[in-house]
Amino acid sequence: MPVTVVCLAILVAWYIAAVFMNTVVAEAKIEAAGGGLVNTLDISWSLERPVIPAPHQVVVEVWKTVFTVAPWKVKSLVFHVWVTLSSTLLGFALGTLLGIGLAVAIVHSKLLNKSLMPWIIASQTIPILAIAPMVIVVLGSVGLTGIFPKSIISMYLCFFPVTIGMVKGLTSPDPMQLDLMRTYNASGPQVLWKLRFPAAMPFLFTSLKIAIAIALTGAIVGELPTGAQAGIGSRMLAGSYYGQTIQIWAALVAASAVAASLVYGVGGIERVVNARMGVRA
């Protein structure tokens, strides 16, 4: 119920904004039609290249490009979503592995903690838009093209929250739980698998939810500076070249729908893991 109310409020605000933004460019057209409130609303909500398309225009565009075009055609939104999604998932997988690997190394070595941590933090202060073209060009020059360079950018963005969360999670067992392992003369890997990893699970899932959303952002950013032929990013770029605002918004809607379902998916896996680990519901 509260969700519905907020959605309705956003829709109303959107329609109102569309009127104000679009009457500026459509003034002549409205005059020609004879002016008046009805004409103003009608025209400002149905322009071919509006400043802000009305919600129903975006819905129609999404419908058209999802359901009326075969999914393997370039005109299909499904095709572009799939291109972006595949590099997002690859980048997310790589970033998660890198993030966990770094966290394990940092937790086990004071030296690595001191030497790696500043670099890991510095890596995130560099604007991704500045590195993305370099990554794509450098990897392209050694023959790596397609989804791989884009997933490297996703990986670059999403390893960070995983590392930070996992360092915290792997060090979360209390001294007594660690002493217990010592009394059993447990080996390092045993302490890692039987104590540190299970204790880190809640931290891992919090990090993964952030990581998967920014992995998608990374993939889209990776498509922008290279004039990629396919993907949500290229769809936005093409839309902006040709003033196809409706197409840009449709791509935006698709991107946020994908992001929401990815985060929701991670949440679902978390619930399954929690149930198996006896977390109090």
């Binding site: 007594m176 739980q177 217990l180 010592r182 009394t183 039987k194 699970m201 680990m277 006896g278 977390v279």
Partner: peptide, 18 residues
Amino acid sequence: RKARAYGYVFQAPALYPW
């Protein structure tokens, strides 16, 4: 300790909750 010659009971149960 390496021969696991003793069992140790701590002040708190220190059970692993998972």
